[in-house]
Design a protein around this nucleic acid. Sequence first.
DNA 1: CTGAAAGCGCTTACAG
DNA 2: CTGAAAGCGCTTACAG
Lengths: 330, 330
Amino acid sequence: MRPPSSTDVARLAGVSQSAVSRTFTPGASVSPETKTRILAAAEELGYTPTALPRIMQTGRSSIVAIVVGGLYNPYFMMALDAFSTSFQAAGNHVMIVRAESDSALDDIVGDLARYRVDAVVSALSIRSQAVADTLTNFKIPVVTLNSGITSETISTVSSDNHGAGELAARLFTERGRRRLGYLAGHDSRPQTDREAGFFAGAEALGQPAPLRAVAGFDYADGRAGALALFGGPDRPDALFCVNDLVACGAIDALRDELGLRVPEDVCVIGYDDIAMASWGAYRLTSFNQDIPALLRGVEAILAGTVSERAILVPPRLIERATAGWPPPPS
Amino acid sequence: MRPPSSTDVARLAGVSQSAVSRTFTPGASVSPETKTRILAAAEELGYTPTALPRIMQTGRSSIVAIVVGGLYNPYFMMALDAFSTSFQAAGNHVMIVRAESDSALDDIVGDLARYRVDAVVSALSIRSQAVADTLTNFKIPVVTLNSGITSETISTVSSDNHGAGELAARLFTERGRRRLGYLAGHDSRPQTDREAGFFAGAEALGQPAPLRAVAGFDYADGRAGALALFGGPDRPDALFCVNDLVACGAIDALRDELGLRVPEDVCVIGYDDIAMASWGAYRLTSFNQDIPALLRGVEAILAGTVSERAILVPPRLIERATAGWPPPPS
DNA sequence: CTGAAAGCGCTTACAG
DNA sequence: CTGAAAGCGCTTACAG
């Protein structure tokens, strides 16, 4: 019981299979009469042409794969939403692949290669040269977000995490804060860059080295991390968090568990500018990664209209109440 | 410059194309020696077999499509995460399709039919019989979430929205609340059912008809809706919201703009049990749709291990601070 | 175990 | 404008 083919339609309409093919190929030449007859036959059989033979013929599937490592962070949603909408608008289909860890990336891309996807965009970064080499062998264009390694086929588009970290340190300093704190995520490229930028910025401004605790990437991690960081005698008066989820958790812990006020006692800055950052309960100052710009970078690379293999996108600082007022001179 | 084919590998290894095919078919018979030779040749050429011919041959693509209407709601994330993870674990690939509106569903499925997807799961509901008829013609299994219409090929798995609405009314009543309010979403199946259940429950319990305002589905809608609903003289003392995003917006507006306490002045219940519902700033009582159960329903339908075309999943009430204490006798 | 051949359902020159 | 035929890259009986 397989779906009807163009041959089935041709038989019913009393024409050649080629005629049927042309009828469903925009711009191909078919006389109005035969076209009508063919469409009627197709309708009767419930015929829908397969895209598969064309993909085999052309080698282009019009499928782009997006690899994500977990969808709990609303930031991934925003990115996925923007990317899939744009790719679809350009006539592509989007395959989404959930990966447990970035070390699985070579297996995943190998699997994707069997479907002849045109490109893969990965929210997971490539962390070893071995994986990069394997990926390169597949000869399918890979664009990673917030990653580092590049190759003949691997490019990367990143938020300027380091620059944002520096800016956070400067902002706190301009607000008169002297005891900076940092809540880190698990080891990863963006985490490392944000932290390095923050520490470098603090040092350049003559600040003592920020206090630091490892949290993670989720709300609960932020709560626990804040408790750990504020458990000692020398509490920070300014806190930069690896992302907004962690910042929200930290703020709630600061307020509910430690009785501290934000921003009076502790200034807080996050990263990603997720929807919740603007919610009344938080009003979190944050860095917006500028997803449209990230997307433009990815599209430029895939379209080949740009020669760089690494594009850095400056994030936009979104000022809200948690970092205190007035805004710094800009 | 197309990727190497099995024929290329065969030529290099000095064997037939069939032998190459068998080498990459688990369980097929090839002698260890030729297999080794073929794998070496494949390695040298960077050969990856295409899945396309097999799809053509078998008619099964192992691709299931998930149609979503916008990813702003963390609930969609949780669902997408659970569904895609499970489908992948079962050896399928997931295509994600963003749709602007449910009226586009027939075009979308038509497009998907060209890729011979095995099934489509839609977060968008089918709202007209015409669309249902078109979909049915494609003969590809469609499972909609929280929808209504079914057909030979269309099934639906829903949270028991009506039952949850009734339960919300009962809970408020048991908490001694007498002026119920409802914040509605835009017209849609789950919205209608939740509201109808809430009103029916209120009536059955001898409550006056709840006050009502149309909000929408997002945080800002909740804020505006709460302001509208509480703008009059007769303010509700209990508020059921079409979803958690709306409930969070309403709570913030109640607290920040109207100076009301939650739950002392107003009890609030939401729907979806998104991550933010459990955050310290909200502690929102909500209905958890039980995504694993929803998923089991979808899988049972697609596997054909169940004959129903409409499965109703009871949601789980998650009690938190916003609906007041103590919990109702259960 | 191995190879030649047909076939999956289209597209694309090529004739007519 | 229309049809016969080759070809995309595999899988799958069928012989050997």
